[in-house]
């Protein structure tokens, strides 16, 4: 069940995390779904729901297609005040390794900067991830963003 983690694989996982962060911070929305498998699960969920086993999520996507639909929404349909986002992500902690599946968690803090405004703490939580290898590349089979932040400052538009 719990197999040893090869150092080279950990380096690859670090690269996956770093690239994901750079992509969502750069506003490269088209690049975001490419980090996921076709039948991935992506959730942005308040910590209360997660800990109490309540299934509602702020965002709940069940496929790469839904992530692409979200990208369309960000770009074409969701009217919003534009902002920069900047993630600071901890080193991932490996929870388990099981036959080509890596289970990890990492802390994150996202800062938001609106035009002409001071930067503020936007959303704080942790990623709970399952990573697999598809055609040689590491992808998220699931990424749950479980946030501590008790209040969303109005709206979250872009992917965490």
């Amino acid at each position: 069940m719990n197999q040893a983690l090869e150092p080279l694989v950990y380096t690859e996982l670090l690269q996956l995390y770093a690239e994901y962060t750079a992509t969502v911070d750069a506003g490269n929305w088209d690049g975001w779904p490419e980090f996921f498998t076709e039948d991935c699960v992506y959730k942005l969920q308040p910590r209360e729901n997660h800990e109490r086993g309540l299934p509602l999520a702020t965002l709940h996507f069940h496929s790469k297609g839904m992530l692409q639909d979200r990208v369309y929404g960000i770009r074409e349909t969701l009217f919003h005040d534009p902002y920069y986002q900047r993630h600071v992500v901890s080193l991932p902690r490996v929870l388990a390794v099981d036959r080509g599946r890596w289970f990890l968690e990492a802390n994150y803090a996202v800062f938001r900067t609106k035009l002409g405004e001071i930067s503020t703490v936007f959303n704080v939580g942790r990623y709970l991830d399952e990573v697999v290898r598809v055609d040689g590349a590491l992808k998220f089979a699931s990424r749950f963003c479980i946030y501590d932040s008790e209040m969303i400052p109005n709206a979250i538009i872009y992917p965490i």
């Binding site: 308040p46 309540l54 702020t58 709206a155």
Partner: peptide, 11 residues
């Protein structure tokens, strides 16, 4: 049946 919560602060 409660499915869960969302909270936002709107200025």
């Amino acid at each position: 049946k409660i499915l869960g919560y969302n909270r936002q602060r709107i200025p």
